[in-house]
């Protein structure tokens, strides 16, 4: 295959991959921006999204239902966790990390016990093989390139156009002042955490037709989201999208020409470089 074609495939694959990871990273970033916490179990919300979508599609026979049920269920779980755990430890950043590592194992092992060790996938809502002159590509996968930005757009609308979104932004800027102006910070926290989890779950649903739902799938997604938010700056919407595309394209292109392991190493070196130059990320606020 010629150089250009390979490059084209690398870019295509990288953009699709980046756009999915952007959804997950955006969820992580929102929770961080508002609550100043890092949720290590975030990847597990992604995994839960995928697993629930599999159940919904298999037993209810409808993938679109999965797209509704999975985020709803994960929102419920996230709300419970927020109330019973995070609030109890007063959103202390380090305790939150330890608690969410605990949550990671609990979710993972429960899924193992109930869903099992298998990796299942579902029939895509439509089957289309896009035939480029040089190679074929999954039409469903290509559609992700439109669905993911759509969801990110809706999220942005929510944050910038609704009252709750306004509250979230206010809390992100200054919690005390927001509280003084009557923002129900407790509820805003819960909403932010749940919204972050829902985005991860939606990403999980979207990938089941071409990746499989598998109980250990969360960790890799978590690590890539971490890279994205570090490069883009935690709490920045724009930064997340840009960084996700950077990471995705690096991954795609380095992978097709060299090796995917090397791509991840290059991505991490980039993280190191960004940190040395701008410890808060490309679009992160200066501290």
């Amino acid at each position: 295959m010629s150089l250009e074609v390979t490059l084209f495939l690398g870019l295509l694959d990288g953009v699709v991959f980046g756009l999915i990871m952007a959804l997950i990273a955006l969820g992580l970033s929102i929770a961080f921006g508002v609550m100043r916490i890092v949720n290590v179990a975030h990847g597990e919300f992604y995994m839960l999204g995928a697993v629930i979508a599999w159940y919904a599609t298999t037993y209810l026979g409808n993938f679109i239902l999965g797209l509704i049920i999975a985020p709803a269920a994960v929102i419920g779980l996230a709300a419970i966790v927020e109330r019973t755990v995070l609030r109890k430890i007063n959103y202390n950043p380090e305790s939150t990390i330890v608690a969410t590592i605990g949550l990671l194992y609990i979710i993972q092992q429960l899924v193992l016990a109930i869903y099992g060790p298998y990796a299942y996938n579902v029939e895509p809502p439509f089957y289309l093989r896009v035939d480029f002159p040089w190679f074929g590509y999954s039409g469903y996968k290509l559609s992700i390139a439109f669905v993911s930005p759509l969801i990110m757009g809706l999220t942005a609308l929510f944050i910038f156009k609704t009252r709750l979104g306004l509250y979230m932004r206010a809390t992100q800027q200054d919690r005390e002042i927001a509280q003084a102006f009557g923002v129900p910070v407790g509820r805003v926290y819960m909403a932010s955490f749940a919204l972050g989890a829902a985005l991860a779950a939606i990403a999980g649903v979207l990938v089941v037709p071409f990746l499989q739902a598998y109980y250990l799938m969360g960790l890799e997604a978590l690590l890539i989201s971490f890279m994205i938010v570090i490069i883009g700056g935690l709490g920045s919407l724009k930064g997340t999208l840009v960084a996700a595309l950077i990471i995705g394209v690096i991954d795609g292109v380095v992978s097709v020409f060299f090796s995917p392991t090397l791509a991840k190493i290059v991505g991490s070196v980039l993280v190191a470089a960004v940190l040395l130059v701008r410890p808060t990320g490309l679009f992160g606020a200066e501290r």
Binding site: V85, A99, I101, G102, L103, L104, Y105, I106, Q109
Partner: peptide, 8 residues
């Protein structure tokens, strides 16, 4: 997992 949760 449970131990970590209980600890914090």
């Amino acid at each position: 997992g449970i131990t970590l949760m209980l600890l914090v």
